[in-house]
Simulated assay, not measured.
Amino acid sequence: MDKINLLIIVNIVSLFISLFLAFFLFTLKTKHKISNSLFAIFLILNAIDVSEPVFNMMVDGPSNLGMFRGTLIFLQIPVFYLYIISVCYADFKLRPKYLLHLLPFLIVNLVLSPRFYTVGVASKISFIQNRQNMIEFQFLHILIHLQIITYITAVFSVLRKSKTLYLENFAGKSVSSYNWLFQFTIVLTILYLVALLKNILKFSDYPHISEWLKIGLLVSSLFVFCWYLFKALNNPDIFRNIDSKLKLVSELVSEENSREQSTLAEQKHNEELVKLRKYMVEKKPFLNPSLTIQDVSNELEIPVRDLSLLINHQIGQHFYDFVNTYRIENAMDILKDDTKNKVTILEILYQVGFNSKSSFNTAFKKHTGITPTIYRKGL
């Protein structure tokens, strides 16, 4: 089987699966409709982008539709960026301001209008044949590079902020999901970089390498998207925790520093700290695997802002780590109890408020330097 036939077959399979997954996401009944729809649109745009081999079989020569199909790549990254925001923030809604993300796509098509969209077939052919010397194509290549760099940077910024907000306000299991989404974004970034390399080689002395990279991208991107959807659909609530109106502790500290601090305020903080530690020991709220800083705030009648500063700034721990410290201390007490030596580590981790073995082992090793199993055997 020659390279061209292989490319067509892989392309058709990729298109079918991508469109099937998009259809599935559009029709899936869920309360997270916006997120699923955004990712479905991303899949469709990606399918259109990689459909060039099949499209060229059906359309003879350059056309307005073919050029328009190529410019849809300028919508891919913006849609992915909106998807990331939608899964990180529980209060996400589509707003008119997001229409600004259409600007690169609209500008590109406006730039192409005078010398491509509005001219005859002969001029279109000449335009394509001399594309390396055309200022429009040079502009397109510069813009797509800038767009990818800008949006990928923005995506990592959103993920970093939302993960920090989670650590400062929650003590559940979702922190590992942010790490997973970081990894997915890194993989996607690599795919885009390879795609850019493919486009560069396409107009160089090594076009054959570009074709093989195209096949590799088709296969790898398909596997990556299927893997991501499998994970996301099996964990539909993993990102539904952060309110976009929450402030980072660093921002709260800056606001506090701008105010005049008094001895009375420091005394109040010390009293709140004693009250907090007493509450954690006596009431053991950390046994709740979904504990949030809002829950503790309501019980202690301390404003969330003050409690966040107390834990994340004065104690010097994220709320997530602060709560896990009490969970680990409780687990250590159980592991040291000879009457409970038949209780499994899995049972213990659920008993003290964890809901996954990996997060328990990570927290336990961070606190003690060893794993729970080694700790129990060493007693």
Rank of each mutant, 00 (worst) to 15 (best):
V253N: 10
S254C: 01
N257T: 10
N235T: 08
F239M: 06
I238V: 10
L233S: 01
N235C: 01
P236V: 04
V249R: 11
N235S: 12
N235E: 01
D243M: 01
Q261K: 12
K231N: 14
F230H: 13
R259T: 13
I242Y: 01
L233T: 03
R259W: 04
N257C: 08
I238M: 12
K247G: 02
S244I: 13
S258C: 06
A232P: 01
L252R: 13
S244A: 06
S244R: 13
E255N: 13
L252T: 05
A232T: 11
V249T: 15
R259M: 05
D237W: 10
N241L: 05
E260P: 00
S258K: 15
N234I: 01
L252Q: 13
E255I: 12
D237K: 08
K231D: 10
S250N: 13
P236D: 10
R240A: 09
E260T: 14
S250F: 03
D243P: 03
L246Q: 14
E251L: 01
D237H: 14
S254P: 00
S244Q: 07
I242W: 02
L246E: 04
K245H: 12
V253Y: 06
N257Q: 11
F239H: 04
E251R: 06
L246T: 00
K245Y: 04
N241H: 15
V253K: 09
D243G: 04
E260S: 07
F230Q: 04
E255M: 11
F230I: 01
L252A: 09
R240V: 04
K245N: 08
K245V: 01
K231A: 08
E255T: 06
S254D: 14
E260A: 08
D243A: 04
N241G: 13
L246R: 14
V253C: 06
L252S: 07
E256P: 03
K245C: 04
E256M: 09
S250Y: 04
R240S: 08
S250V: 10
E251P: 00
K247C: 09
R259E: 12
K245E: 06
L248A: 11
